[in-house]
């Protein structure tokens, strides 16, 4: 569909997910899955609150942020009311299901099965006092930033 003007197609991407809200996590997941669908090699690196998407106890309970998000067009006091974030999350989940976008756990499994490597950031793991057992089984390893750059050799790095 697009002319590449003779430029090299993208061969490899390393995608960093640093935020733990639903809208913070999904774009990176969609890009990683999309990369594999196009035959592009992919790494996913979860850091700081982005790790919520791969922590067993948390990954099924991500929420949409209804406060501090001007694009929600919702007064801050309303967004802060109990249940509003859950409601917005539920609505978004419904819309995503219509588009065949899976829940986080299923999506992570699909992306991993597609051959994308999944890593947690060592500094964040240490900071939050987490262990390998706290993560879902798809997490390949806990790696340092240096190792992240090593494994990203030849890749485009995308920070989300």
């Amino acid at each position: 569909m697009f002319e590449n003007n003779g430029l090299e197609p993208i061969k490899k991407v390393s995608i960093i997910i640093s935020k733990g809200s639903m809208e913070g996590v999904y774009p990176g997941l969609i890009m990683a899955n999309g990369a594999r669908m196009e035959g592009i090699e992919a790494n996913l690196f979860f850091t700081f609150f982005g790790m919520e998407a791969i922590i067993n106890k948390k990954m099924d309970h991500l929420k949409v942020a209804t406060v501090g998000n001007p694009a929600m067009h919702m007064p801050t006091v309303l967004g802060a009311l109990p249940g509003i974030s859950a409601l917005a999350t539920h609505m978004m989940e419904k819309e995503m299901e219509k588009l065949d976008i899976p829940p986080v756990r299923e999506f992570i499994e699909m992306i991993h099965d597609a051959g994308c490597y999944i890593y947690a950031c060592k500094a964040s793991v240490d900071m939050f006092h987490l262990k390998k057992e706290d993560f879902c089984k798809e997490v390949d390893d806990i790696i340092t930033v240096g190792e992240f750059y090593e494994t990203s050799a030849g890749a485009n790095i995308i920070f989300t």
Binding site: N33, M37, E38, G39, D100, I101, E109, M110, D113, A114
Partner: peptide, 27 residues
């Protein structure tokens, strides 16, 4: 169908889809 639909309904799972059609199964 999307890759998710293929995975869920075709009877062939994600890993196998990528093995059968390397470099982009759905496409």
């Amino acid at each position: 169908p999307s890759i998710r639909k293929l995975t869920k309904e075709s009877g062939v799972d994600t890993k196998e889809l990528y093995a059968l059609f390397p470099k982009g199964p759905a496409k």
